[in-house]
Amino acid sequence: MMPAEPSSARPSLHADVTVTRGERRIAAAFDVVPGHPLAVIGPNGAGKSSVLAAIAGLVPLDAGEVRIGSRRVDGLPPERRRIGVVFQDYVLFPHLSVRDNVAFAARMRGGSRSAARAVAEPWLARYDLTALADRLPAELSGGQAQRVALARALAADPDVLLLDEPMSALDVEVRADMRAELATHVREFGGATVLVTHSPADAAALADSVLVLERGLVTQRGTLAELRAAPATAYVERMLAASVE
């Protein structure tokens, strides 16, 4: 299987989720069309990651629904949703080599170890990981681990890609380069993409529009330019002012 070319045949994502984490109730609803990534932005503890986890099926929904194209997935377990996730800190499998991390999805589909590795090869090449294929995650730099996480998620051929703070584990000096690289990969994926971040710079580089989540509630949505023109809350104003990165 060759990496998919950018495709407009990919479905859009409709998410309307309400979840409870600890004391907090989090509610957010949005649609994301392929090729137009959405950034969910907000202060720490606003519930951004919980929204992603709910879409992926890793935390139960209190109410709402998740649809991918015409397919309703909120009743399905995570393994049947076809949603790829790049987790915060990447959460690679520490006991598996880079190659076997990328081959994991193929392996779970029932292939032999060697067949799964064959499927992984083009992905390793595409993300410049061939030379690192035999390393364990503990032996990777942050940028390398990010590429492995992305390759691992996309090798599963997901309909939707979720990225949870993909830049936060990286050193500040490499962030700008990595951001540009990640933006390229996200464009190449071409499917519906949701990015969680607290950085307007990430949002600007990776997403077309922004949804602001504060204390579990959506306080503003629009493009960054629209947010700049009329910040709806003090947080949005502060965030944009501080983001001369």
Binding site: A53, I83, F87, V91
Partner: peptide, 12 residues
């Protein structure tokens, strides 16, 4: 979280 990661990659 590795268990959740595995589930999103299609693992039962």
């Amino acid at each position: 979280r590795t268990e959740g990661a595995a589930a999103t990659l299609g693992a039962s």
